[in-house]
Design a protein around this nucleic acid. Structure first.
Length: 428
RNA sequence: GGAGAGGUGGCCGAGCUGGUCGAAGGCGGCGGUUUGCUAAACCGUUGUAGGGUCUUAACGGCCUUACCAAGGGUUCGAAUCCCUUCCUCUCCGCCA
């Protein structure tokens, strides 16, 4: 959510940000509703003040043993007008809030212009890419080494729900633990294990709702109360960020850094058909997420930290990657700035996104009402998050990149402690 | 799942025979006095959000509204009465 003062006092700035994003949003409608809300609110406040004063004098009269019946009769009509006006105000207020929730965040000034992924800026590259190398793809490697079973997964749940088998399951678990332990032991994060189902309010807090409901798996409440629906988490960002909703944190405790593993569930409505081979796009996948709550003056440093933590994992896994600075038109709904980490997949001969690291500034904090306090001042804090990392595409790159001439998978040295020292996975 | 108790400000806790209650008291926090330092004692202060207004503006001041789990109702007036929902605790049952 944007600061109402911003669009009230500086609508052109907001319009420009929306234009850079290529977002279609009814800013004029929001401004109209906002103005109407304030006019009604002022009138309503006046009436309520009138009623409160009258009630007080009635109380005084009664205490002194006087007759208050005419005053009571008079105040009754004020009450009726308040009720009427309040109903109108509530409608406008709800409309304004619902519309405001559909407005994306504004891109930070440093974010490059651009419409699509083609306009993203390559900020860094690490490792060597051998584009001519011929290796079997991850599906073939997986078949040879019996690492996963897509067919039986589909039998259970449809496409996009793989079963990891044997060493594949162990490798997956090792990756998750390697990520978590590295963040906890080397990057100073506190691990949390959150619920996989969250309420509607949490999904609104981080920005998945109301706009992207069709991408989410929803469990309807028994009594049909939509506020009590539960959603399968599309990322640990949702439960972890909303942990502190409606809280005022002591600024001295910031930044707070959490990491969490959860399975992630996405319907991928509309995007099915592209990139759906094997592990490239799934309905359920595993991810370790990093979430930071930062002081509003310190969030840009925190963004660089998160990017560094995600990069460190790829380096330890010896996977060549590049860092993209997303252009305004390609950023997610809530981000003010976003880096994508893409790893090179030799058989696919292309870059695969394995991490997205974003600073939301106060956008989520306003929605979820997360503030911080220092020296008597209360402000919205800044939230950030980054994948560290999502496993499926890392697994793709890992298998293809570390596939040996002898038809085995070489476990990178950094990962071995999580596989009991195992150096190689060969066909059984 | 059955029975009962309860949800009040950062925390504890009074109020709950409706009006002087944004809410006693205590703790904590902040400022000050005292003190060689610390502690103790004493004095003062201490919620959040919206709107209006004053100052060129910020800081801030003043006026006002809302918030005592959430939503609704009764009433001139609700923390206090009624209804619904949610949550927590205790006991019993069931179960990983």
């Amino acid at each position: 959510m944007l600061d109402p003062k911003l669009y009230r006092e500086n609508p052109e700035l907001v319009r420009e940000g929306l234009r850079r994003r290529g977002a279609s949003f009814d800013l004029d409608g929001l401004l109209r509703l906002d103005e109407e809300k304030r006019v009604l609110g002022a009138e309503l406040d006046g009436l309520k003040a009138e009623r409160n004063a009258a009630s007080e004098s009635i109380a005084r009269l009664k205490r002194e043993g006087g007759d208050a019946s005419s005053a009571i009769e008079q105040t009754r009509t004020t009450g009726e007008r308040i009720k009427e006006l309040q109903a109108r105000y509530d409608v406008v207020e709800t409309q304004a809030r619902e519309l405001a929730l559909l407005c994306p965040n504004l891109p930070h000034a440093s974010v490059p212009d651009g419409k699509s992924s083609a306009d993203n800026r390559v900020a860094a590259t690490w490792g060597t890419v051998d584009a001519d190398r011929e290796v079997p793809d991850h599906l073939e490697i997986g078949r040879k080494l019996k690492l996963f079973d897509f067919e039986r997964g589909a039998k259970l749940s449809g496409s996009g729900f793989p079963i990891y088998t044997g060493m594949g399951a162990r490798l997956e678990r090792a990756l998750i633990n390697f990520f978590l332990d590295t963040h906890v032991q080397r990057h100073g994060f506190t691990e949390v294990a959150p619920p996989y189902l969250v309420g509607r309010q949490a999904m609104i807090g981080t920005g998945q709702l109301p706009k992207f409901e069709e991408d989410m798996y929803r469990c309807d409440s028994e009594n049909g109360d939509r506020d009590r629906d539960l959603f399968l988490v599309p990322t640990a960002e949702v439960p972890v960020t909303n942990m502190h909703s409606d809280e005022i944190l002591d600024a001295a405790t910031l930044p707070i850094s959490y990491c969490a593993y959860t399975a992630c569930f996405r319907r991928e409505a509309g995007s099915w058909g592209a990139d759906t081979r094997g592990f490239l796009r799934l309905h359920q996948f595993n991810k370790v997420e990093m979430v930071k709550f930062a002081h509003p003056d310190k969030s840009w440093e925190a963004l660089e930290d998160l990017r560094g933590h995600a990069e460190a994992l790829l380096q330890m896994l010896e996977l060549p990657y590049r860092v993209l600075e997303l252009c305004a038109g390609d950023m997610g709904f809530g981000a003010a700035m976003c880096y994508d980490l893409e790893v090179w997949a030799p058989a696919e001969k292309r870059w695969l996104e394995v991490s997205s690291v974003s600073n939301f500034v106060d956008f989520q904090a306003r929605r979820a009402n997360i503030r911080c306090k220092s020296e008597g001042k209360t402000r919205y804090l800044h939230t950030l998050n980054g994948s560290g990392l999502a496993t499926p595409r890392v697994l793709v790159a890992l298998l293809e990149h570390h596939f040996t001439d002898r038809g085995t998978f070489r476990v990178p040295a950094a990962l071995r402690p999580w596989l009991g020292g195992l150096e190689e996975i060969a066909a059984a």
